[in-house]
Write a protein that binds this DNA or RNA. Structure first.
Lengths: 331, 331
DNA sequence: GAGGTGACGTCACATTTGTGATGTCCGGAC
DNA sequence: GTCCGGACATCACAAATGTGACGTCACCTC
């Protein structure tokens, strides 16, 4: 025990169940997520090594620590190389459809494959990410320490209008936490009411610095949104269901980075696009790696548009989407 | 090295990546799920302790081992006690709606709370379970060793007609694997074409023995199905979408144990009920513990019918369902 | 075939973790 | 006040695990 050690020793005598649980979580996080030894973390928390050890045992028994062994989803190398050749992709990752899995586990399998691919890239000092359901699922599967010291920056606006939507604006933080590294979020709405507001925001030095960081990122990773009412962009309140249906009628096939695109990959509605803040469609394809992740039904069209337009050079998708993209009937 | 040790030593020299991954999974499963020491499991697999240790390290780094720290979902004690009093439940578990969580994480939170509740019951030598999405999610969250040596028996038919439906018929196995214990499944379709077939099957000694085991279980655990086309009972092909819509028109509010019930908790269609194999509606409520789990939208009605009719004496549900049940406007 | 290279096996040893024995404190019962 | 039980602290020790050094082997290059 050094000089600073006598800050607070925890008396476990009369701790409430909640306080105890909170301690269990603290111990488990430090042990499993930060790879500290029980001795070290005990010192930090003002516990003894034995208290920490027993707390950890309780945490495991209570189910606070969940350990799962997941054999990595097999891939479909034939489809992958066909996609790569056909669309000039740097890399394609295709997850087979797994006979008896349900929609959700297929979605998870894609997210896992994406996380694995990303983790396998080695150190990436600066990574741009978008947010959304898909991206959150990917973040959840990134292994601890996949990219130590990385800077993770959001490349599109992240403040939601409607609160109880899917919890999205912590995607960057999730990416950063598991790296471990730092997250920079873009604290503005994804879509504004007027283009002038967007320009004004972009000129603000603070915002400009963040946008610039995103533009400098050699790697961007983003999910693709389908034209469905449960898309995050609608759920967050930026675009109404009616408005989205109207966009669909005018040729929109989905969204990437908060921007609706048509089958050619161009902005489906230039006015709407001008009100959208963040990395532009003309910029995204120019990265070293532009990783697009498409998981779930209804995303084949937006995936097709993205690869055709060169917005992505790495595509992660499920087998159905891959097959659809390779289908010759689509001109 | 004892006498029997020289069965097969694994030469790791020229192993393919896949074989290596397979070994990683084997090591990880034994280490984390079966609590074996590296030395023991290495002997079993024909590896050295050091090989096993390194393989385990690789498995963690590769994301094959996923460790998550989940602070247990807070509960809503006020709603719980109101439900208990109002419906005479032995216990109610209510998971608050969590402001910014999406549908899926709310579903997971309920499953987790259910798993926790079940694990907290202590040793239950014989447990009856149904199958379905909800039950599978619960099984996924049961801690290793929650009920050592338990016998888990399916109380309704489990052979699916349509294959690529949600992977449900391994629910009992999942429950048993984490116990660890033995699973007995009921290898017949949930719903048959004719009541006579059901009776014939029930008289078969093998089937009768399994059904009897289920009837003797002091504890049954089951999920509740809503009247939606994505309900597992429809996805599995037992009931058509049209047929289900028709049932809804005639008063069905959902299903438990594969049986559609009306608002009073009685079989919505006696003929259909007579073709359904497994624990009957008149039997389910007579257990020591009859645990019903309702997670997700559209399940308030079936939950209400179940508690009213006394089919469950323990209810696990999300906050929205709880509030709906307590709503005085419903007579 | 010599030499180099890198992946792997083997092992001694340090570190980390688990466990049971024993002591101590607290609160309640009498 | 005294006694008692249980929850917890503390510790010594055993067991399990991680790590670096070094040797060996297969394979490649020249």
């Amino acid at each position: 025990m050094a000089a600073e050690a006598i800050d607070r020793d925890i008396q476990m005598r009369g701790l409430s169940a909640e306080q105890r649980e909170h301690l269990m979580v603290q111990v488990a996080k430090r042990y499993y997520e930060q790879d500290m030894t029980l001795g070290d973390l005990a010192a930090e928390l003002g516990l003894t090594r034995w208290q920490a050890s027993r707390l950890l045992g309780e945490a495991r028994a209570a189910g606070i620590v969940e350990i799962r062994i997941v054999p990595r989803a097999p891939r479909a190398p034939d489809l992958e190389s066909r996609l790569e050749r056909r669309f000039g992709l740097r890399e394609a990752v295709v997850v087979p459809a797994g006979e008896e899995d349900d929609e959700r586990s297929r979605f998870d399998a894609v997210a896992r494959a994406a996380a694995r691919f990303i983790a396998g890239l080695g150190r990436l000092p600066l990574v741009g990410v978008s947010w959304g359901r898909t991206m959150n699922a990917v973040a959840a599967h990134l292994p601890q320490g996949w990219n130590e010291g990385a800077e993770v920056v959001l490349v599109n606006g992240a403040m939601n209008i409607r609160m109880p939507a899917t919890r999205t604006n912590n995607t960057a933080e999730l990416f950063a936490r598991s790296a471990p590294g730092a997250a920079t979020i873009l604290p503005v709405p994804a879509i504004l009411g007027r283009a002038a507001t967007r320009r004004a925001l972009e000129e603000d030095p603070t915002i400009a610095a963040i946008l610039d960081l995103g533009r400098r990122a050699p790697v961007v990773i983003f999910g693709m949104g389908a034209m469905t009412p449960d898309s995050v962009i609608v759920q967050s309140g930026f675009v109404g269901e009616v408005e989205q249906a109207d966009l669909a009628r005018r040729g929109a096939v989905g969204d990437i980075l908060g921007r609706y695109i048509d089958a050619t990959g161009r902005a489906a509605d230039p006015d709407l696009d001008a009100r959208t803040i963040g990395l532009g469609l003309d910029e995204v394809g120019r990265r070293e790696l532009s990783i697009g992740i498409a998981a779930g039904p209804g995303k084949a069209a937006v995936a097709r548009a993205s690869v055709r337009a060169g917005h992505v050079n790495v595509l992660v998708a499920d087998e159905r989407i891959a097959l659809s993209l390779l289908d010759e009937d689509h001109p």
